[in-house]
Design a protein around this nucleic acid. Structure first.
Lengths: 209, 209
DNA sequence: GTCTATAAAGAGATAGAC
DNA sequence: GTCTATCTCTTTATAGAC
């Protein structure tokens, strides 16, 4: 059950509806909003801009979301639930430390590619509202879990020990997260190929073997 | 001459005064503004917020900068002139391809550490105003120059050729740029140590040797 | 479920006194 | 060089008709 949900996480970008009732265009509204948030920044995106992109009056948007901030919350949850899902998959919990670490890093790349706009938004959150701070808390928890895997891999001798594990972990995520700045799903590289490349560079560096 | 200026670039964060005359508190105003821009985002930072942080009326700020956007321009120029300076240093133009690439990557890390707030701001620019687009043009030019070094290093056999050079370059910069998210100059690690660590991970990866 | 109209607050920027 | 006061525009959000 949990595995099924977790496995869906990478490929199915559509969330479970938040409210039991109509929900009609909630997802379409959210997608337009997220696209605008990414383009102009959350704060610089006005309800007026969303209304003209949607071809809807400002007031009508409030029928779907009670506030601009609730769109942000929903979008951030899309990203975070995907990442958290990776940690629940069997591959993240079985095998050697090296295998588990590799699985989670590749999983993070796959989720990032599958839910690109949502993860992009997540990575720009700075914690200026309670909604943003809650998102940062969940993100830090994910980072913490991955750091634990890095420490395990170092203790078992597969990860270099001459550089602080915390620094290594941050550099790794810096590399992975930066993918949102240039990866486009319609480009030549598939998400799986991307995940393989990232893992190869992360593990073996850019030096010629 | 050029070398002197370029060598100062990493350690001297103070710019030449923009205007010949008083200039009094321009730099202090800028530092407070940049700190607020980083904390809340440029758009979400109001002149009122700056005025209360500075202990100055809104109107008084306009004595130092003619517009909010001019503070952004000045800050972005701080970051960009530092990075561009690295390319002008002798180490970036002499030696093997590998040596030049290593020098520039280390130089980028040193500038990033020395001008941390300015570079942080630069990395968040998305190009929504002409000032931001101009900054992005300069940043892309810098990236292009580094990419050329990566290609040279690959052609001379020191950089892996099984992954697209463009992808390798982007992952490299993703790693370097992510430093702004966690590096604090008052921490245990010096900027030079940081530059060495980043280069080590970038070249040889995180695998145990 | 969407509209027009509007309220209430806050934005960037300016005028002019001191 | 800084102030108070103010202009004008835009913001998020609501009221109430259809």
């Amino acid at each position: 059950m949990m595995a099924d949900w977790a496995m869906m996480a990478e490929t199915d970008a559509a969330p479970a509806p938040k409210k039991g009732r109509p929900g009609f265009d909630r997802q379409a509204v959210l997608d337009v909003a997220v696209s605008a948030f990414i383009e102009h920044g959350y704060d610089a995106t006005s309800m007026g801009m969303l209304s003209s992109r949607l071809g809807l009056s400002k007031a009508a948007i409030y029928h779907h979301y009670p506030a601009k901030a609730e769109m942000l919350r929903a979008a951030l949850d899309e990203a975070l639930s995907g990442l958290e899902g990776v940690l629940l998959e069997p591959g993240a919990r079985e095998g050697t430390a090296q295998e588990r670490l590799a699985f989670v890093l590749q999983g993070a790349v796959r989720v990032l590619a599958a839910r690109l706009p949502y993860v992009t938004l997540l990575l720009r959150v700075r914690g200026n509202t309670e909604i943003e701070r809650e998102a940062l808390r969940r993100r830090r928890e994910f980072d913490r879990a991955v750091t634990a895997l890095v420490v395990d891999a170092r203790d078992s001798g597969t990860v270099r020990s001459d550089i602080e594990p915390a620094v290594v972990t941050r550099l790794l995520f810096g590399m992975i997260n930066s993918i949102v700045e240039w990866y486009r799903p319609d480009g030549p590289e598939s998400a799986d190929q991307l995940a393989d490349d990232v893992l190869a560079v992360a593990l073996n560096g850019l030096s010629a073997s």
